[in-house]
Design a protein around this nucleic acid. Structure first.
Length: 739
DNA sequence: ACGTGGCCACTTTTT
DNA sequence: GTGGCCACGT
């Protein structure tokens, strides 16, 4: 019995081809991650490759985490020395070592989209360009694309013709200058600078080429030109490059993903072996037929024919409702019914939508119906105001070179340092070629700000004291001290509103994250550093770690659903104008519509057994009602795939015993979708007891009549003033005690 | 220097 | 419906 027995012929073929370029075209649900991980195991165990020579690159942290976990399970000894990381974090690791070769300090900071926007705005103001006429968003987009094509401001400048392009080139140049003097890189710079580093220093490149002798790239269809260039450079010498992708699942064109990378791989790497994985292990034949039917309308794709041994399965469901409210109500009721019937658990069900804004209505209905749910994505934890503020403080303590961070917090909480003062300091800093923070230290030499002198001194003093303390305190202690000394916490406590309490909660969550980070680093026998923490934070998109098994419905966008699977999927808002969106309908480029269609394909192929599709005729968009047709994607699908009766009978598919692979996937999903706050609520005591008056977000006020410990969660019975008696799960009802 | 009220644009999607 | 920005008043 070997670990490779679970692979089919095609998968095995891909695993065995270890030398030379390999392109794996892996259809949805065809077990591509399984192939990748087994291939790693094969390299180590059968080919005696030192794990140190293996690199696996993914696109998201989630995927990297999953890959790491699965490799660990499979390989055991030596697995930790395999380089498993995202493109961006790989580049950061490389750049931290060699940043000086490019003129950066190795403590460079990483700017997210918000930071970029701030810089662009500032640059525009300085150049007297009205940001109302030239939108920051489009500038950001253009800068990003220029970087993707490896065009520096100088190159753009040379090529410009009209006034508009000239203006852009100027902004781009100033933007880049500003970042450089702030010792900062944006996400695109991370990739671009690594390429520049390699191209300028062949000996550094060769070092990495010899380290990464076997390179694997997951989600290859999502790579952009720069990323391709990077892989190309790394793999050029040994040519052992294995990429896995599905051109039908390329859904990130908008941010530069280039489907050409997959279609032209064989031209760039000669002697490429191509393996197609077409057997699907995830879905029923009905679901696959539907997916195939949708995707076949796209042109310029590699022909694939997904098949399965899973059988026809349950028929698909489609309902069109009068309004989006009824749609949400149906989905909510349907889930509740299926769970009541024992067909599914809450966690088997996922609601997938095109835009984050759609989650609201579902959330409302779920609160009413007391159905546990969790929304993935949406507003990023690390882009919340309070979190960004604390991070900015930490950055300033770590090194004062990030002007953006210092400016962000110099007057938070309010210290009476206003815009006029900040501008004067800024001018002084520019004139003397020093950082903003250094200018603050010299504030006594700056004309015209004597009024604020004391306040500035107070601020720099706080920072210096915290810096001194950071030598001895742990990171978490430092953060607590910071909250205390700056008065940040006090201000929020004082405010005492719903919002301020939520902010305090988030800050506490940040502190738990810091503690978790410190523990993680310590467990690998290293000592945690402030800089290390900030770096990790810069590259993490959402809080998708921390493990606990809870049973809830998952809501997310189609984009975040990629790579996941659920027994029971609701594809909602299938309407022309929403999905496909207006932009793609009215766009001249056919590519946009094709991308939307691929997105639809991704959505359909998430479903394992039951696929429900819904649309609403009328929907509130941006405060006004809009009428929508049923989405063109599903309008003319073969009728026989669908169940016609609206009230469907339940299909009892026998549940197969999960194999190791499925088990790992399930474990991963449970971990990925758990939340810190829920954990705290259950493990600790509730902050209310029987007889207390509490408030519920929808039901209003009521009196707690009973609390039962239901194992996983507390079940609380509440007699509401208007809504009557309800039994609720404590961690989802989020009851607030009224004093 | 700072708070408030009215106006605007905004919604794809994420490292 | 909401959050960001500007102008105005204190």
């Amino acid at each position: 019995m070997s670990i490779y027995d679970s692979l089919n012929d095609k998968q095995m073929e891909a695993v065995r081809h270890t030398e030379g370029p390999l392109l794996i075209l892996a259809g949805a649900g065809s077990g591509k991650t399984r192939v990748l991980t087994h291939r790693v195991a094969y390299l180590i165990e059968e080919k005696n490759v030192n794990p140190f020579y293996i690199m696996a690159i993914t696109f998201t942290n989630k995927a990297a985490g999953e890959m790491r976990e699965r490799i660990n399970e499979l390989v055991g000894y030596g697995a930790e020395s395999i380089w498993v990381a995202t493109f961006h974090s790989s580049c950061v690791r490389i750049l931290r070592r060699y940043a000086e070769c490019l003129g950066y300090d190795r403590n460079f900071t990483i700017y997210d989209a918000e930071d970029q926007k701030t810089v662009i705005k500032e640059v525009c103001r300085r150049c007297n360009i009205d940001t109302k006429q030239v939108k920051e968003n489009s500038i950001m987009y253009r800068i990003s694309h220029a970087k993707d094509r490896m065009e520096t401001p100088e190159i753009v400048e040379k090529e410009v013709e009209d006034f508009e392009e000239k203006q852009f080139a100027k902004i781009y140049r100033e933007y880049q200058k500003e970042l450089f003097s702030n010792n900062a890189m944006d996400f695109d710079d991370l990739i671009l600078n690594t390429i520049v580093l390699f191209e300028k220093n062949p000996e550094i490149l060769e070092g990495y080429q010899d380290r990464f002798r076997y390179i694997m790239v997951d989600e290859y269809q999502d790579t952009n030109l720069a990323q391709f260039r990077l892989i190309y450079l790394l793999a050029k010498k040994h040519q052992n490059l294995c990429v896995v992708g599905d051109d039908d699942q390329s859904i990130y064109r908008f941010r530069g993903a280039n489907i050409e990378n997959i279609l032209s791989f064989e031209r760039v790497f000669l002697n490429t072996k191509v393996v197609k994985l077409e057997q699907n292990y995830r879905s029923t034949q009905n679901i696959l037929d539907c997916a195939n039917e949708v995707i076949k309308k796209n042109t310029g794709r590699k022909e694939k024919r997904l098949w399965t041994e899973n059988g026809r399965g349950e028929k698909l469901h489609f309902h069109q409702f009068e309004t989006s409210y009824e749609e949400a109500e149906f989905v909510c009721d349907d889930i509740a019914r299926r769970v009541r019937n024992g067909d599914y658990q809450y966690s088997d069900c996922a609601i997938l939508y095109r835009t984050n804004a759609q989650s609201r209505i579902f959330e409302e209905k779920f609160i009413y119906a007391n159905v546990p749910y969790r929304i993935i994505g949406g507003i990023n934890f690390y882009s919340r105001k309070e979190i960004k503020d604390i991070i900015a403080y930490l950055k300033t303590i770590d090194n004062g070179k990030d002007d953006l961070a210092v400016k962000r917090i110099i007057n938070v909480p309010k210290r009476g340092i206003g815009a006029a003062t900040i501008n004067r300091i800024d001018d002084y800093a520019q004139q003397n070629q020093i950082s903003f923070y250094e200018a603050l230290l010299e504030h006594e030499d700056i004309p015209g700000i004597s009024r604020s002198s004391k306040k500035i001194h107070f601020f720099t003093n706080v920072i210096q004291v915290l810096r001194a303390k950071s030598e001895t305190l742990s990171l978490a202690e430092l953060a607590e001290e910071l909250l205390e000394m700056t008065g940040y916490q006090a201000e929020l406590i004082e405010e005492d509103t719903e919002e301020s309490r939520a902010r305090l909660d988030n800050i506490n969550e940040l502190i738990s994250k810091i503690v978790a980070y410190e523990e993680k680093i310590k467990s690998s026998n290293q000592s945690p550093t402030l800089n290390g923490f900030l770096e990790e934070v810069a590259l993490i998109a959402d809080l998708d770690d921390l493990n606990q098994n809870q049973d809830y419905v998952v809501l997310m966008t189609l984009h975040s659903a990629k790579g996941l699977e659920f027994p029971n999927v609701y594809l909602v808002g299938l309407e022309d104008g929403l999905f496909p969106g207006y932009l793609s309908i009215y766009s001249e480029s056919l590519e946009e519509m094709e991308e939307e269609r691929r997105l639809c394909y991704v959505g359909i192929t998430r479903a394992q057994k039951t696929l429900n599709m819904t649309a609403a005729f009328r929907r509130m968009v941006r405060g006004e009602w809009q009428n929508h047709d049923v989405s063109r994607f599903i309008k003319n699908l073969p009728r026989e795939l669908f169940e016609d009766a609206p009230s469907e009978k339940t299909a009892h598919t026998t549940v197969k015993r999960p194999n190791a692979y499925q088990q790992a996937k399930q474990d991963f999903q449970r971990k990925a979708f758990s939340s810190v706050s829920n954990k705290i609520e259950k493990s600790g005591a509730l902050n209310y007891k029987e007889g207390d008056t509490v408030e519920h977000i929808k039901f209003g006020r009521g009196v707690v009549t009973n609390i039962q410990d239901g194992g996983r969660d507390f079940e609380v019975t509440v007699e509401f003033e208007t809504a009557g008696v309800k039994r609720l799960f404590a961690s989802f009802a989020k009851l607030k005690k009224i004093e």
